[in-house]
Amino acid sequence: MTTAPATLLRTAAELDALARPAGARRAVTMTMGALHEGHATLIRAARDAVGPDGQVVVTVFVNPLQFGESADLDRYPRTLDADLAVAVAAGADAVFAPSVDEVYPGGDPQVRIVAGAMGERLEGAARPGHFDGMLTVVAKLLHLTRPDAAFFGQKDAQQLALVRRMVRDLNFGIDIVAVPTVRDPDGLALSSRNRFLSADERRTALALSRALFAARDRLAARQALLARARSVASGAGRAA
């Protein structure tokens, strides 16, 4: 049922009025904008899941609760016109792009989701409160969009694990679908923030993916050698 262009919704009331075809499933993909091929892959996965008669909603919202410094928040890329084009090309029916006041009327919310111990490790150890803010906005957007399924990239592994835990612990009744990481040809995972990297910083950033791929290849080679050794031993045993 995708049309061009996708419907742009700015308020919760407009989103609430978005008609859902009878019997159709709704999927949501949550973003902070500056959409790239990784986001497009999520949207296409959502479209494939709900089928041509289903409904795909993309949210575009730069969430202030998950930023540690105002400078980082202020410089986060905002490219709504380009985002609309990417979303509709990938199969979105509607884009929900609310203001901060629309999502948090009256200012920062007093009641929030707390990530707990899972949110204090790994990335959470370096960014205190980040995952609390992330879960709070995800919870709000799930309530506002009321999807049957929500699609998240595996690139943000800790985020994905926390969203799944929140949905399970709080009985949201929504399917959380993981989509594999999309990478540039050099191996760096696609990210809206990559545009800020200098050439030297990008080379440094590649160290992680190269190390992971090297470990994967080494493990695969080791498993192949072990399988070969077992096959040779088994053949020798039958010959005897």
Rank of each mutant, 00 (worst) to 15 (best):
A239Q: 12
A227G: 13
L144W: 13
A199G: 11
I174N: 09
G116H: 01
P128W: 10
R218D: 15
R195K: 11
G187I: 11
L170S: 12
F213R: 13
G119F: 07
M32Y: 00
N194F: 04
R222C: 05
L197D: 04
R203V: 11
D93Q: 09
R75Q: 15
G235R: 15
L80A: 03
P77C: 00
N194P: 08
D83Q: 09
Q110R: 14
T2Y: 05
A157N: 07
R193C: 11
T31D: 06
M32T: 04
I174S: 09
A87D: 10
R121G: 10
A13G: 05
F131T: 06
A85L: 09
G106V: 02
V167C: 15
Q154I: 04
A178Q: 11
A199F: 06
L219W: 05
L162Q: 13
R193E: 10
R218I: 04
A12F: 07
A178K: 06
R20I: 01
R78D: 13
V56N: 10
S99A: 15
D72G: 01
S234K: 14
G54T: 01
F131G: 10
T3K: 14
D169Q: 11
M118V: 06
A40D: 00
A90Y: 05
I174G: 11
P21M: 09
Q110F: 07
Y76M: 00
H130I: 09
R47L: 03
M118F: 05
D53A: 15
E120W: 06
T79S: 09
R210P: 03
L188D: 02
V167W: 01
Q55Y: 07
G173C: 04
G187K: 06
V232F: 10
A89S: 14
L84N: 08
R44E: 14
A22C: 04
G235I: 06
G91F: 10
A126C: 07
A207M: 08
R44C: 07
D81M: 07
T2A: 13
R75F: 02
D156R: 00
D16C: 07
G129K: 03
D72R: 02
H36C: 01
G153W: 08
T204F: 08
H130Q: 15
I113K: 05
V163R: 12
G106F: 10
L142E: 09
S191C: 12
G38P: 03
G119I: 10
